[in-house]
């Protein structure tokens, strides 16, 4: 019953969850900020891509490319104007503010687009599949997974091979000493959130093309993302991919046993991992 096919589908689904989670992981890793509006930002991105597709009549990939700089700028402003003011020793203000942001985004989307569910059409790509010997997989899930791996490789390169990444890590270690090195922490944070919003745009592209979405779809994505980040170990990007895959596989296997168990199985896998490894699979410093 639970064949290779199920596992492969689960792993590929995990790629989508890893994309949901990567931006969250990035922001948490650098500034210890849990953005409760992360899922809603993904949904917002999906609507933005939808609008670009219908206004410019371009295909969704091109539309995401158009949306990306807009999302980047929004992320920068959001951090600079709102979130930087909430950071400090107290962890409550960022939670309250991002929760408020989540409500605002959901309501704004509801007002602008109604509660109807939407989908970004990929045309023939939606049903295309390739034969990989023993299993047949959809092209879109495959592209999603490849995107997730590319995003994580890219973020790791950014983190460990560039001056910006060095500033990210130094600021995350010790803000005061970083500022003695000429780094401005609020600017580093704004850049980090802007980069996270690029990842959100990619996540939004696949959220919108692989399933229906509506203004209230955000919180569930936040939970999957959150679980993936925690399973992987806070701050480890490869861990986040592993976490996404574990939830994806658990959901697909659960669904194969009983379709009603899909979501529940993911949450149970999350709890099981936490029971065995309370700090996640690759706690801080691990997943280089």
């Amino acid at each position: 019953m639970i064949g290779l096919d199920t596992l492969v589908q689960g792993v590929l689904l995990g790629g989508l969850y890893a994309l949901f989670a990567a931006g969250l992981s990035l922001v948490f890793g650098i500034m210890r900020l849990v953005n409760l509006a992360h899922g809603d930002l993904i949904v917002f991105g999906a609507y933005l891509i939808l609008v670009v597709v219908s206004v410019l009549g371009v295909n969704p990939f091109l539309a995401a490319l158009v949306a990306a700089p807009v999302m980047f700028a929004l992320g920068w402003l959001l951090q600079k104007v709102v979130l930087n003011r909430t950071l400090g020793d107290d962890i409550l203000p960022p939670l309250l503010v991002t929760f408020g942001l989540s409500v605002v985004i959901q309501n704004a989307l509801l007002e602008s687009f109604s509660a109807d569910s939407q989908r970004i059409s990929m045309g023939a790509l939606e049903t295309a599949s390739v034969d990989l010997g023993p299993v047949t997989v959809g092209v879109l899930p495959l592209i999603t997974f490849a995107s997730a791996v590319l995003v994580i490789v890219g973020l790791n390169q950014l983190f460990y091979r560039t001056a910006i990444g060095r500033a990210f890590r130094a600021t995350s270690d010790d803000q005061v000493t970083a500022s003695l090195m000429g780094i401005r922490p609020d600017r580093v944070f704004a850049t980090a959130t802007a980069v996270a919003m690029l990842v959100v745009t990619i996540a939004a592209l696949y959220l919108g093309t692989r399933a229906n979405f509506d203004p209230s779809a955000g919180p569930a994505r936040l939970i999957y993302a959150f679980e993936a980040v925690i399973i992987g170990g806070l701050g480890s990007l490869w861990g986040t991919l592993a976490g996404g895959i574990i939830i994806g596989v658990a959901q697909t296997v659960g669904a194969a046993i009983n379709p009603e168990w899909q979501i529940l199985a993911g949450h149970i896998a999350f709890l099981l991992v936490l029971l065995v490894k309370p700090r996640g699979l690759f706690p801080q410093g691990g997943g280089r």
């Binding site: 001056a163 270690d173 090195m181």
Partner: peptide, 24 residues
């Protein structure tokens, strides 16, 4: 500044700690 207690960045290698001084 060479701060009290050295305050190296634990996530950075020796060379990266040096390079960050010249970030600007």
């Amino acid at each position: 500044m060479v701060p009290e207690g050295r305050r190296l960045f634990p996530s950075l290698t020796v060379e990266e700690n040096l390079l960050i001084g010249a970030q600007h």
